[in-house]
C-alpha cells in the first residue's frame, strides 16, 4: 500500500494505492484521482512548462509547455531541448515550438500569443 497526495487538481486528495491488488486506488473523490494514482506508480508523468528565447515582441521570453504530460524521467532531457530554441514574433498560442520531445511524439507548444512589433 502506497500513500500519495493526488496532484490532478488543487484539492489534494489523500490516495492509497494497493500494489498487491492491481494498483487499485482508494481515497480519491473523482475518477481522475484513480487514473493519477495508478499512473503515478506505474508510469509517472508531468506537464513541463518553461520559456524560450523570443525576438521581435514586447517580451524576451515566450512561455511554452509540453502539449501532454511526459514521462517524469525525461524532464531534464526535455529542458535541454529548449536551450537553443529561438522564436520570433508573431507567435500564436498553441504554435509548435519543438515537434517531438525525445521520441515521445509530444510537442512543446507556445502558451501565449505575441504580436510582432517594430521598434
Amino acid at each position: 500500500m502506497t500513500k500519495l497526495v493526488c496532484i490532478v487538481c488543487p484539492k489534494g486528495c489523500r490516495l492509497e494505492v494497493d500494489e498487491q491488488n492491481g494498483c487499485s486506488v482508494t481515497g480519491n473523490s473523482c475518477p481522475r484521482g484513480e487514473v493519477y494514482g495508478k499512473s503515478e506508480l506505474q508510469n509517472p508523468t508531468r506537464t513541463i512548462t518553461s520559456t524560450v528565447r523570443l525576438t521581435g515582441a514586447a517580451h524576451r521570453r515566450c512561455p511554452v509547455k509540453t502539449a501532454a504530460p511526459i514521462p517524469k524521467h525525461l524532464i531534464s532531457d526535455a529542458m535541454r531541448l529548449l536551450d537553443d530554441i529561438e522564436v520570433s514574433a508573431p507567435v500564436k498560442l498553441g504554435q509548435t515550438i519543438v515537434p517531438d520531445i525525445c521520441g515521445t511524439g509530444i510537442a512543446f507548444v507556445a502558451t501565449r500569443s505575441f504580436a510582432a512589433i517594430n521598434y
Partner: peptide, 25 residues
C-alpha cells in the same frame, strides 16, 4: 497570470488545465 507560466489554472472555470498565460489570453 502572465508570469505564472506553470499549469494548473482553469480546472474549475474552463474545465481544463491551462497555464497562466493561456488563462489570461
Amino acid at each position: 497570470l502572465n508570469q505564472c507560466i506553470h499549469n494548473g489554472f482553469g480546472l474549475h472555470y474552463f474545465k481544463e488545465e491551462l497555464t497562466g498565460p493561456e488563462f489570461a489570453e
